[in-house]
């Protein structure tokens, strides 16, 4: 018994190292998602999430962002008037020059969102980091926010739902809209539409922090001409468009 077994010792040493590695790996991974927000920490007002859509890169007929959104958020993908559409591709033709454009429209995550102003119960709210959301437990389904939204960005759940995504709570009789994939953003990831657009090789949607002068989106907004939809309403949306 006193004789030591070098092989056993080596095995124990490797096993311990592996166990230690497994134990700290999630922490290391979490560290890797440096933009992620630890659970329980409030969203920061120092950040303002936004997007810049380059309509020159957005393909007519390409629907990858819409498909990715539907998949990520558990939407049916149906296009009946009663189906939820959090993001839609809009085809534009200039009435004077005839120029054609294609671009995605979703919740514009306004700084002064009319939906939040009109919501009687405060179910519609704007997070400190600029993401406009609906508290599904507080929404009474009056649809006043849908009347107030200048972008027609909101949908009402007309039917009972099944097979919901755990990260994306939805509910029959409540109103919903693009969450800017808040569950992904909080993990330090990009919204699903942005990822899908990049994967399609277009990279037409740039996501980032509008408040950070060093972020890619801020730099780009400083160098190219971009616009907000219905800028005349002075709502200061977080979604900007290039080429319109």
């Amino acid at each position: 018994m006193s004789a030591e077994n070098p092989e056993r010792r080596a095995f124990l040493g490797k096993a311990s190292a592996l166990a230690a590695g497994l134990a700290i790996a999630p922490g290391v991974l979490l560290f890797g998602f440096a933009h992620g927000r630890p659970a329980g920490e409030a969203a920061s007002g120092k950040v303002r999430w936004g997007m810049l859509v380059d309509t020159n890169q957005c393909g007519n007929g390409c629907n990858d962002c819409v498909t990715a959104c539907n998949k990520e958020n558990g939407l049916s993908g149906g296009t009946k008037a009663t189906d939820s559409q959090w993001i839609r591709k809009v085809e534009l033709k200039n009435m004077k020059g005839g120029r054609n454009l294609s671009l995605p429209v979703m919740c514009q995550h306004c700084e002064h969102p009319p939906c939040v102003d009109v919501c009687p119960t405060g179910a519609s709210f704007r997070r400190a980091d600029g993401i406009v959301l609906v508290d599904k437990h507080r929404c009474i389904g009056c649809r006043y926010c849908m009347m107030a939204c200048p972008y027609k960005a909101r949908s009402f759940v007309h039917e009972p739902l099944a097979d919901q995504k755990p990260d994306v709570p939805r509910g029959k009789g409540t109103v919903e809209s693009c969450t800017l994939c808040v569950h992904r953003v909080d993990r330090g990831e990009q919204p699903a539409c942005v990822e899908a657009c990049a994967k399609a090789g277009r990279g037409a949607i740039l996501f980032g922090d509008l408040n950070d002068p060093e972020s890619e989106i801020s730099k780009r907004i400083r160098t190219v001409a971009s616009a907000q939809i219905r800028a005349d309403l002075m709502l200061n949306p977080g979604i900007r468009y290039e080429g319109i």
Partner: peptide, 13 residues
């Protein structure tokens, strides 16, 4: 939403 443009979409725009 887009004054001056003819608009079409799957969402009734």
């Amino acid at each position: 939403i887009f004054p001056g443009y003819e608009v079409t979409s799957s969402f009734g725009d």
